[in-house]
Design a protein around this nucleic acid. Structure first.
Lengths: 218, 218
DNA sequence: GAATTAACTATTGTCGACAATCGACACAAC
DNA sequence: GTTGTGTCGATTGTCGACAATAGTTAATTC
């Protein structure tokens, strides 16, 4: 438990990185906007070193890009970036689900099912925000049990970048129910340990997202 | 071309990161060894800020891990880490090769073939070092033409970490000729645009590496 | 003697200042 | 009009110092 407490003590850099991340999520910053160290330093009332620290963290998460002697900029995600990320997410998730399928115990399937039930509730209410959170929870739960910690890190990083891109769009999925149903199908495929079906469902699910994204912007 | 020149102007931090990377490759540092900022600062005759910069770069490449207020350490790769990385590499490379297969033009295949010829020469001489470089070149060439820039970055990062792990082993592949032949088979599968065969060859190739790694250490 | 607390030391976290570099603009040469 | 050159302000790169913290050893208590 000491470990947890230790991990909770965040450095100033981390705190500022989180603050900036929220700004990006909330569209307080434009794609490609330049971030000036000194300016942020006075804004947050810290030194430039601390801002640099925050930049490094954000750069690792792919939210920001810094060019030597040119400054650091909010990452400018294009339609092509989205395609690349979804392609990556597809192969990772497919493999992760197929691995998880054999590794998950009865109790894990039950837990997954309970996430589905929550999803149904929120889908009926048309509550997109919570639905997206549950979506994350569902996918991350499976990936957590795939036996490859690198998959998890990669997946998280992709999700964060996708979320930024999505935040800059206004239109969401048309039907919360169909969104929910996709997860049900995925779950069914897992329970029946049908690897081919899992693979197909993952591909369908991601293509579904892809279509919604590509239809707009650029 | 100005871009290139610009990219060549390396900051002190980058230079030091490279120096440290070489130290790690050359086994001048042990797995898990703690790196002390002040110590390195005096050794390289720079300030601690610069060493920190170098640490960030190395951390992004996965060669070093830093824990808040505890310091930064040379990454300690275990057999499990290797398995995870090879699993990741497998799915990325499989997808990359299959995509590249349709995207590469006649000239690209010729270039690939020329790499193979160089490999044959070095394989006959039993020159492992150059053979490994050519192996890298072969795989990276294909991945460069898969149409997904994120694949390339990921692959590079995996390769670097693998190389560190390998550097800490003493035994290499038994036969340079069979190592070369694997690439010939991969090439043949590509030329014939036989996706299934490509997939199988990639899996075989990586399993081959895996066996060699897992037999030793731990 | 074991456990707890209190210095002490080594090391990282944060800071503000100076140096080097970039981009923009003005000016000169052709 | 275009191209090159020099200057200037804005911004990043690098620095060394001080503050805060973790790990270690010594002192204290029971």
């Amino acid at each position: 438990m000491n470990e947890d407490l230790n991990a909770m003590k965040k450095s100033l850099g981390e705190l500022i990185a989180n603050a900036l991340k929220q700004d990006i999520f909330n569209k307080n910053m434009e794609f490609g906007e330049r971030l000036i160290e000194a300016e942020l330093a006075t804004r947050f009332d810290v030194s430039r070193s601390t801002i640099r620290e925050a930049f490094m963290i954000l750069e690792q998460e792919g939210l920001v890009t810094s060019k030597a002697r040119k400054g650091t900029f909010v990452s400018n995600f294009t339609k092509e970036d989205m395609n690349e990320m979804l392609e990556l997410r597809l192969i990772i998730e497919a493999k992760a689900f197929i691995n998880a399928l054999d590794r998950m115990e009865e109790e894990h399937y039950l837990e997954l099912h309970s996430i589905l039930e929550k999803m149904k509730l929120e889908a009926d209410k048309g509550n997109w925000n919570i639905l997206f959170d549950l979506d994350m929870e569902f996918h991350q739960f499976v990936i957590l049990h795939c036996g490859n910690s690198r998959f998890r890190k990669l997946y998280e990083s992709i999700q964060v970048q996708l979320r930024v891109y999505l935040a800059h769009l206004n239109q969401y999925y048309s039907s919360p129910i169909s969104f929910y149903m996709e997860h049900v199908e995925l779950y069914e495929a897992l329970v029946h340990k049908d690897k081919q079906r899992v693979e197909k469902q993952i591909a369908d699910h991601i293509n579904y997202v892809e279509e919604k994204l590509i239809r707009q912007k650029n």
